[in-house]
């Protein structure tokens, strides 16, 4: 038999088929029910805006790779996910150039300037939303929300709540299905939940962040004598809890850290909703917790097998 030289490398010698690209593909699949809901409720403009965001995001990702002489990361689909999420955070009435500016900002400033995938400190799509709200408040909030059915601009349920107009509130069923005013991708809790279940079943995300985030909002709303179901269904909570707070890069990697992160998101969301001047708190709560992620991680390291913490040694009964 002829002598063949084999490839040598460190173990393990087999790897799972899951790659960054397959994970992102799963996230896109999970986002598709919400996309369909957006088309139903907002019509063609939802598709157009999403297309602009995705195209600009991918183009920016490609161009920044060229600019920085780095290997292109377009193939990992992360820019596509960011593009879709930016669009989902826009009102259907937003002009195309706002979508484009937001996408360039998200990819170039928030993501690539910090080192690209895996290195950004805050969620690119949410940072872009915050940026756009600050720059073009009138086009991003309040009166910007137009349903496809009529052309009368109207406030979101949370907008109504903060203005004290309770009479025009949509029913639970309308809110659950998505028949209410809001950003492109946030209205249908049903569609977002289908996506969330898909992600958990496919093990793309764990249940910890979305479930604990939603539970915290529910409990806090209850304590504040608010309608907890309303707060679950209103605004961008579902979109935020399932797709934004679960962003790998900007959320803690430790199980305990993820729980603290989710509780923090829930508390800040409710504080902003109830006591802030701005009706919606999801994006800022997640951005704030993104920034806290490194410190949460530092204090929530998992317990190492066979290592007994110094604190525990004090009581002898615990040390076997």
């Amino acid at each position: 038999m002829e002598t063949k030289l084999f490839t040598v490398s460190s173990s393990p010698h087999i790897k799972s088929h899951t790659t960054t690209a397959t994970l992102m593909r799963d996230v896109l699949i999970a986002l598709s029910p919400a996309m369909i809901a957006a088309i139903i409720f907002f019509g063609i403009s939802a598709v157009m805006l999403t297309a602009v965001c995705v195209a600009v995001a991918v183009l920016t990702e490609w161009a920044s790779g060229k600019l920085m002489h780095k290997e292109s990361t377009v193939g990992d689909l992360s820019a596509v996910v960011t593009g879709v999420l930016i669009a989902f955070n826009l009102p259907a009435s937003a002009p195309w150039w706002i979508a484009a500016v937001g996408s360039v900002f998200a990819i170039l400033i928030v993501k690539q300037a910090f080192g690209g995938i895996g290195h950004n400190i805050v969620n690119p799509a949410l940072a872009a939303r915050a940026f756009l709200v600050v720059c073009w408040g009138a086009r991003m909030t309040g009166s910007a929300f137009i349903p496809a059915a009529d052309t009368v601009t109207q406030a979101t349920p949370l907008g109504l709540l903060s203005e004290g107009i309770v009479g025009q509130m949509p029913s639970y069923m309308d809110m659950f299905l998505g028949n209410m005013y809001g950003c492109i991708g946030e209205v249908s809790a049903l569609a977002l939940l289908i996506g969330g279940i898909y992600l958990i079943v496919r093990k793309v995300i764990t249940w910890r962040i979305p479930v604990i985030y939603l539970a915290t909002v529910f409990i806090f709303a209850f304590i504040l004598k608010q309608d907890p179901v309303f707060h679950l269904l209103a605004g961008g909570l579902m979109l935020g809890a399932i797709f934004m707070a679960t962003d790998y890069t900007t959320s803690p990697v430790t199980p305990k850290g993820q729980i603290i992160f989710a509780v923090g998101c829930g508390l800040i969301t409710m504080v902003i909703r109830m006591f802030g001047s701005y009706p919606e708190g999801v994006s800022y709560s997640i951005l704030l917790m993104n920034v806290a992620t490194p410190i949460i991680e530092r204090y929530t390291k998992p317990r190492v097998y066979g290592v007994v913490k110094a604190k525990k040694i004090r009581s002898k009964s615990e040390v076997k």
Partner: peptide, 22 residues
């Protein structure tokens, strides 16, 4: 034998480590 890419901090390794390491 695909070359390594950037870590996306997905936490899969933390969940998989039987020793509780990161």
């Amino acid at each position: 034998l695909a070359p390594p890419k950037d870590c996306i901090r997905c936490a899969r390794c933390v969940d998989a480590c039987p020793m509780g390491l990161m």
